[in-house]
Structures are given as C-alpha cells and as structure tokens.
Design a protein around this nucleic acid. Structure first.
Lengths: 214, 214
DNA sequence: GCTGACCCTGACCGGATGGTCAAATCAAGC
DNA sequence: GCTTGATTTGACCATCCGGTCAGGGTCAGC
C-alpha cells in the first residue's frame, strides 16, 4: 500500500490546502464580489503566496467557479426536501426554517450568491435556468395542488417562494445593517417571527375556524 | 443680466454633465460594487474621457459618495411618511407600498445600497447609525404603542420592519433571478401578495380570535 | 477678433492586478 | 543520503487602474 498510501496522504494534504484557499476566497468574494476581489488578498488570507494559490487553481475564475459550484449543490436541498405527502403548512414552515438555518450557518455563501445575482447572474444563469427553475416550477405546482385541495390558504405560489427567499436571505445579506440598527438582543427572533407570519398567511380559513371553534 | 445668464447657463450645462456621469456611475457601481467598478467604464458610459470625468469629480470615491448621498435622502422618506395618527394597518401597508414602488422605480439605487451593505457598510455606517437607527427606534416605539392599544396584532416590531425591507428590496436586488425563474407574466403581482400577507399578519381581529382559540 | 475662463483629451505616471517561470524547498521511497 | 516528484516562492511581465498634467478647443463678453 505504499503508492496508495502516499497518494491518499498527498491528496488529503492537497484537499486541506484547497480548503484553506476556498475559505479565504469565500471571505473576499462574499465581501467584494468577483471583480472587486484580488488574488493577493485571497492568498494572504489563506497564508500563502499568490503563485502557490495559482498552483492549486488555474485562475481567479476557477476559484470563484468552484465556490459557486459547491454552494449551488447546497442551495437546492431545502426545496427538494419539501414532502408532497406532508402537511402543507408544516412542510412550508419546515422549508422556511431550513432556509433560515442556512442563512444563519452560511452567511458568506448567501452573500456570495446575492452578489452574483446583483451583478446580473453572469456566471450562474445556467444553474438558475436548468437547476433552480424546474424545481421551482415543480414546487409551484405542488402548492397549487395544496391550495386547490383547500389545505392551504390561496396565495400566489411564485410570490410565496420569492418571499421566503427574501425573508431568510435578508438576515445574512444585510447582517451589517441589522447589526447597526438593532444591535445585540434588540433584534428579536427571526425564526419565531417567520413562523408566525407564514402560519397566519397559509393556514386555510376553514382550518383556522376549526381551531377557533376547537 | 449677462453675467447671471452665462453663469446659470454654465451651471445648467455643468449640472447636465454631472447627471450623465452619475447616471453611468450608478449603472456600474450597482452592478459591480465600489471596488469592482472602474472609472474608465463609467467615463465610457457617460460618453467622455476619464480625465474629463475627473474634472467634474475629484475621485472615484467622490462619485460614489455623491450617489450614496443622493440615495440616502430618498431612503428614509417612506419611513418618515408613516403617520402616527393614522390607522395602524393601513399606515404600514402604505409604507410597504411606498417601499415596493421605490424598488420598482429605482432598482439600481436599491442594488447600490444592497452592495454597500453586503460589503460591510464601510461608507454608510454613519448614515445607518445616525440617520436610520433613530428613525427605526421611533417607528418601533410607534408600533409597540399600536400593538399595546390592540390596534395591531402583536408582532415583533423590529422583525416586522426588517421583513418589509427584505420583501420589497428583493424585487430590485434579485431581479435577475426573478427574471429567470419566473419570466414574463408568471411572476404574479408583488403588491397584491404583500398586501395580503401584511393584512393577515397585522389585522388585530385575527390575533384576538387566534388567542381565543388558544 | 481678442481675451479669459471653462471644458475636454492624449499622453503619461506609479502602483496594483492576474498570471508566468525558473529555481528552491520539501517529503517520501529507496 | 540520494532521487524523484509534489510543493512553494521571489522575481518578473503585460495590462489595467486611479489620478495628473500640459496643452488644445470652446464660447461668452468686450
């Protein structure tokens, strides 16, 4: 197992170095966007020289593409996790919670994505067209079905999805603003608020009355 | 009135040139952020040479600062327009509508602001601290009063304000994503959706009944 | 048609930026 | 300890960037 061992040890080492580069690159790209980021800054953040960084990644674009690729894999998971067989309101609330968790746990990824969209999505339009759109279409159909069955209050499904994206990503993308306007504990709990908001919006009238009567 | 005429004619001409520069600069800054924007690109967009641009503005920072200054004046207006003497739900819905109108009519300004926040708000923290925060605090107090008087369903006021910002700005900041995921008429009407959403959330009657139901 | 202030630009500068290269260093197998 | 391939970097390059400067054009007032 000499060759195999050596190769895996090397590959592990290589993997760690790449991870350090991607980590530093995420900081810089999330803060300044693709054009505003510099390889020198990324290399410094990763604790190495610029030529060494370019030994692991062929170009600035490649680093950026790798980050986006890794990110977009995660991006669709919460949408996919919606269970068509579940209770509609609870399924959507679960989706909201997952999205909010992602914003809390991966704020830089969220900002990277936001920056890319603001810049006109030049590098991720393929993902949006062939990855996100079909899944959204599917989910829109699912929501329409739920609404038609009276298990969900009648809402515009597309707008509903957009609203969830907006409300959850906001906490990551605009963290700097939130930290200034509502420093410390004054911000309240986004999770509880969103739960309340979507429960009120989505609970069908019949169910609401049943609860009222119950 | 020779001198006066000449001076106003010149000032008018100067004003037009500055406007052309700011117009082009808004395009570029909104798309690529401060660091990603270049003076050459702005000058080309404004149809002039870079040195001429720098004849009107001393530096890249000055162009950017001017854009932000002009923008931030507009930014607070909708919040200020909330009438403490009005009907709570309608006042907040009016605020939502105004914010949504701004996102529709000034999407580049919205993206400029968003990019600045994502970048850590290095150039607008003063505005956030001394302009936005006090006004938000005031509005939070107003909402608390309304809630205490039973004229508004009990909601976290700060979270309510954040949600309005998120939901309205989203349509400008993420326009590229929306255009791809829901091209053409499939997007529905954001105004109607937000109206429905906030009416359900804020109308106190619903809250009372929900509490009754326990 | 001369003057003087304003407007505009080509050429240029110093420094940053993405990327290359040859040489030095390191780690692992013998 | 020697070899070999993977890793790392200082020096360098072409280009771009923000900004300067000297000079030329424009135009209103005389």
């Amino acid at each position: 197992m000499p060759v195999s061992d050596a190769s895996t040890a090397r590959s592990r080492r290589r993997h760690r170095t790449e991870a350090a580069i991607l980590e530093a690159a995420l900081d810089v790209f999330a803060l300044h966007g693709f054009r505003g980021a510099t390889l020198d800054q990324i290399a410094e953040g990763a604790g190495m020289s610029k030529p060494n960084l370019l030994y692991y990644f062929a170009s600035k674009e490649e680093v950026h593409a790798r980050l986006l690729g890794d990110l977009l894999d995660h991006w669709l998971a919460p949408l996919r996790a919606i269970d068509p067989g579940g209770e509609p309101v609870e399924e959507i609330l679960r989706y909201v919670r997952r999205k909010l968790d992602m914003s809390r746990d991966y704020p830089r990824e969220s900002r990277l994505f936001a920056g890319e969209i603001i810049a006109g999505a030049p590098r991720i339009s393929d993902f949006l067209v062939h990855g996100l759109r079909p899944l959204v279409d599917e989910t829109v159909g699912l929501i329409r079905g739920w609404t038609a069955a009276g298990r969900l209050a009648p809402v515009d499904p597309m707008q509903l999805i957009f609203s969830i994206w907006a409300l959850t990503q906001h906490h990551a993308d605009f963290a700097a603003q939130i930290a200034i306007v509502a420093p410390g504990d004054r911000a309240g709990d986004p999770g509880a608020f969103l739960d309340q908001l979507y429960r009120r919006l989505l609970t069908p009238e019949a169910a609401a009355e049943r609860i009222r009567a119950g």
